[in-house]
Every structure is written in C-alpha cells, then in structure tokens.
Design a binder for these strands. Sequence first.
RNA 1: GCCCCCGUAGCUCAGCGGAUAGAGCGGCCGCCUUCUAAGCGGUUGGUCGUGGGUUCGAUUCCUACCGGGGGCGCCA
Length: 671
Amino acid sequence: MAGRKRVPRPAAGITQRRTVTAAHCRLCGSSRALCHGVATLWRMSDVRSRIAAALAEALREIGVAEGVDPVVEPSARPEFGDFSTPAAMASAKVLRRSTRDIAQQLSDRLTAANVEAVSAWSVSGGFVNAHLDAATWGREVIDAAVAMPGIERVTMPEGHAVFPGKTLVEHTATNPNKAAHVGHLRNACIGDTVARVLRRTGHTVEVENYIDDTGVQVADVAVGIRDLGLTPLDGEPFDQFCSRVYVEVSRRYEHDPALQQQRAAVLHDIEAGKTDTASFVKDIARRVVACHLATMARFDIRYDLLTWESDIIALGFWRQAFDLLRDSGAIAHADSGQHAGCWVLPPESDPHDLDSDAAKVLVKSDGVATYTAKDIAYQLWKFGMLGRDFQYTRWDPGDPSSPMTTSAEGDSADVHFGGAQRVVNVIDARQAYPQRVVTTALRRLGHEAAADNSIHLAYEVVALTPAAAAVLGVPLEAGREMYALSGRRGIEVRADDLLDRAVQRLSEKARDADSARDVAAGAVRYYLLRFSLNQIIAFDFDEALRVTGDTGVYLQNAHARASGILRKVSDDGIAYTVPSSLERVERALLHRIDGYTWALAETARALAPSVLTAYAFSLASALSDFYEHTSPIVREADAEVRRFRRALVAATRATLGDALRTLGMAAPDRV
RNA sequence: GCCCCCGUAGCUCAGCGGAUAGAGCGGCCGCCUUCUAAGCGGUUGGUCGUGGGUUCGAUUCCUACCGGGGGCGCCA
C-alpha cells in the first residue's frame, strides 16, 4: 500500500459509507478476508473521530500507517488537554527517531490539518494532546445529545461496525418446572440488555426464549403431582408450588430410588408420543412459563418467540439434523468401544476417533437423542440451515403484545422466525463444553461462517455469600466463601421475592407505589448487570438492596434530578451559547456526554452490559458533581450562563435517559 | 490428568499496552434558610497472588508456579 491515498475529511454531520480497513473486523474478530461485506456507517460528527482520522492521515504522512494504530483517548488529566494520543511513542520505535521529535512533527501536522473544534495541540511526555475549542465542541455535543431521543439508532463512532443481517439472541431458557431465581434473572437481564444495545446501535435483532418442556426437570414435577399427589397450598402461585414439588421429589429420590423409575416412565411416554402424559407435562410447562413471563415482565423483559423443545421433536427437526450429520460424515455409529451402539460426534482434535473420551454422544444406544443433539438441530434452524420451519401462534391470542410461540400444528405462512446470520446464546459458563460441541457440528457440516458467528455468551453464575446463605437458612461451613444456588435443593433467591424486597425498601422514600416499583426493578437489573460476565456474583442482600452509591437507584435519581431542574428553569426560547471558558465540572460533564456513543459501541462490540452500567454511573456522577459545585441555575442572574447550563442539563438528561432505557431501566422524571 | 474463570484497598468490584492504579460500601471528620442530602467534600486504606520473560512503557501480553471456583456423562 502506498500509504498516500488522501482520505477526504467530510464536514461535521456528513454521513459516509466506507469499508473497515483494519486487519481484523472489530465486530466479528475474523480477518478481513473472512468477514464478508461488513461496512460501517460513520459520521464525523464527534471530535474524537475527527481527531483519529486526522491522526491516521498524519501517521500515513510520516510513513508509519502500517505499524502504528491511530489511538485517541480522553486525556488522563485535564492539564493534558481533552484528547491525547500515544502514537508518537509507538512511531519512535518504527522510525528509530526520538519520541520528542515525532511528537512535535505530529503536533505540527495535526495543527495544519485544522480539525474542527480543536483549538490547539501540545506535546507532553511523549503524548500529543488536543485542546478543544469549548464553544464549538460544547455546542456539537449538546445538540447531538438533545437530538438523540428522536433518532431511531445511535450512530456508531469511528471504527465500530454494524453487523449486517439478523442477530438472534437466545436468553432466559429457564426450565419450566420451578420459579425463576436470581441466577435465571441474571441470564435474562444480560440477554435483554444485549438485545437492547444491539437494537440501539442499528442491528436487526430477534429474541427467543427456549423452553425445555421434555427434560428430566419438568418430568420430576410431573411425578410429584401425578404420582405423589402433591397439591398447591391455598393461594400458592403455580411456579412456587412446582419449586416445592421439585425439592420434595428430589428429596424422596434419595430414600426411594424406585421412584426414579416413575420419572423414566414419564420421559419414555413423552418420547413415544403418548399423548395423555405429554399433554399433562406440557400443561405444567405452560403454566410455569406463564409465571416466568409475568416475572420477567416485571423487569420489562420480553421475547419475540418462545421455542418449545417438544415442537423441535414433534416436527422432526432432530431427525432432519441427524440425516444431515450422518450423510456428511460428521457423526458416525460406534460399533465397539465405550460408545458402542451410539451415534457420536468425534472431538475437534480428531474427526475420526469415535472412541475418544472427548467424543460426544448424540444418540444414545437406546435410540434417544441427547439434549445437545436437539441443540444442534435448534442451532441449524436458527441459521435457516435445516430446511424446515415451525408453525407459529400467538402465546396469548387475546394480547397482541404477548410473544409468538412455536407450534407443531396450524398454518402460519405469514410469519417467519430464525434464518439469522449471527446467533448469540446467553448460557452460563458451565455449559461451555456442549456449546462447543454445537459449533463443532456446524463446522463439520461445512457451515464455517455459521460456526464463526455462533457466539456462546458465557457468564458466571450467581452464588450466595455466607451472609445470604444464612438468611436462607443454609447451614454454614467454616471457611466456605460461596454457596451455590440450587433449585433442586431449594437454595435460591426467587426473582419475584427479590423484587418484592426491593420495592418494600424503596417504598419508604418513593413518591408512590408505581415509582417504587419502577425504581426497584431498575435497581435489581443494575445490580445484576454491573459485574463483568466472567465474574461470579457473590450475592448479598444488603448489597443488592442498597440504595446509595453505585446503584440503579442513584442513576435513576440523577435522571429525576435533571428533570427537576428542567421543570424549574424555564426555557426562554433564546438559543444558548457555550462559553469559551468552562468550569471544571462543566467540561467534565460534556466529556461524559460526548463519550456515550463510544460506550454504547463498545458494549455492542464486546456484548458486555457492564461497560454500559459503568458508563451510566460515571455520567450520573458527573451530573452530581456539576450539581453540587455550581450555584443553582434557577437563581442564575446571567442569562447566558443560565441558558447554557440549562442546555447542558437537558443534554445530560437525554443521554442518561437513553442509557437507562437501553439498560432496560426506567428513566423517571420524579422519584 | 486436561480445559475454562477468578485472585487489585478491611469488603464488593472497575481498569481488556500508556502519564501519579480508581469506584462503591465500611471507618473517621464535615456540609441541608440554596434547582430532590437516595447527594457532596475531606480523610483512612493497595509489595495489583508469586517468580521469570516480552516491551520505550506491564495491573494489562507470554510463561511457570501458588490459592479459590467450575467443567470434562449414553444428565440437562
């Protein structure tokens, strides 16, 4: 590459289409050769993108475009300016010249580039720093933020691409045999937030909730109700009743192993298509799913489609997948060895070793397909590679806002699901191995792109601190730091109960019941989202229900505070101007607002909700800092200052509101 | 045995190659006749598990250990 091609710098606000030039796609991670047609819509409306583009050009001019990334970051400290780049230090090595000379050279070229809203460049300690013209930059940031609520998608900044085609997100997938607990809720909050973030950044998204209504867990409950005659207590919600049955049946298995034959009989009846047993089990599952949907709706979590495992079986999806796998040689029948009589998928390391410990049995010697087998069929369907489709009906025909649901019968030619180009499965980290088997199967079938775009969005579990375990009456063991949740043993914090407790806590100070409910749901969501995905959440009641500091309550309160200011300070209808000299807290707040699209883009790229929670907290903190360290706007005598600060608060409110809604939280104007 | 995750302040966690390692909670001291004190300021508190290595630069990347958790089923 000549490295001389001039890239025209578009004026602010101009939208351009261009192809990503990095060696690897930042979205899918594959090399450019494998990543087909990913294009990015970028708008040079933010200074940071403009600086990065100008820097890239400057690096080309000094001949290091290949070896040095045009990294531009917010300056570590205000005295270093507004944005800084360490590119000179990296260039020094390539050019074998002094950092200081190169920094000065870059600074000179950047000065000559006349980047809009940059007033000066400086060099300090190897960094080249941009100093912004507050009046120009501030107006840009505020205007973009205030306009944001009206635009359908937030524009991705420089270097961030939108994945083309449909992304299918599967989450929740709680077994339909018990009430959802806080672990299931973590899954649902992650999945729901990822879907919201992708939609907000311009992606096409479909959300599915997989219902395992043919597994052992629901069979356990069927045994408890049908064979043991367990009945609900007066007023006991059906999902909680099932939780109790599940624990009771599991307890009885230990004393009465013969009881497990009852479960085997139930599973056998389902497999054989014996309709009275199947409909009995399906009825249990339906009623529990109704409870799960109600629970999740309290957190504003909804689905486009409920996918029933029984439909995958009834419609012969596995049979179809099996034929594809067998005909392609991806799986083979083991005639001898430890897997004799089974159809197995050989390990990644050796596509022919049927006897390996790492080989995965997909069809047991009794002819029954394993769970992972059905998951392969489902994954193929998700990518539209099965050549078959479900029938669909409305979950609640009387409620158009209820999800669609798969069905084995009926006629629904007008609706279509699946056929995605990318699949995100939100499943806890313990299931990494079977998820890997699924992608291996796709690869063996020759579906390389689908395998590459099959994302197991793994997250660690929620566990109990000793304090939380004690609250639940779990016997403590000396030196033990974590206690696992277990629906089977009844060790759990139910999602509904946790929310009830949060509502109760907030009712003390909330203006009314609706407000307490909204803020409580947001607070619980925030708590479950703020940990990075590979961190086990050490669940603690005091921490989860806390209302001060780094909490959802603080964020929502900050939004209400901004709304309150806007109510009190009337808009006089005269256009604001940004002063050329800003207060420390004003500049800091503008920087946080300016950083929103970057935080959102990074969240979408990494599929990491905690990036967005951390951003939202930093924005709310910046607002508090501003609020506490400037005099009340409502009493501000200088009309220009008043108009500017009002606009600044309006921009903050718009941005924080957008962030909260993208996190699935309410953005209340009063609390 | 092999694989994955975690180890940063008393506690819970951010920080995914750049400038003096941050936040919340807890402790201590302050601030409500001022747009919501669910707030703010100050203070206390860290050999970033340990040893090597790569680099101009490492909490961040590599490697070997140590400690904790999880996974390696003809369960889901």
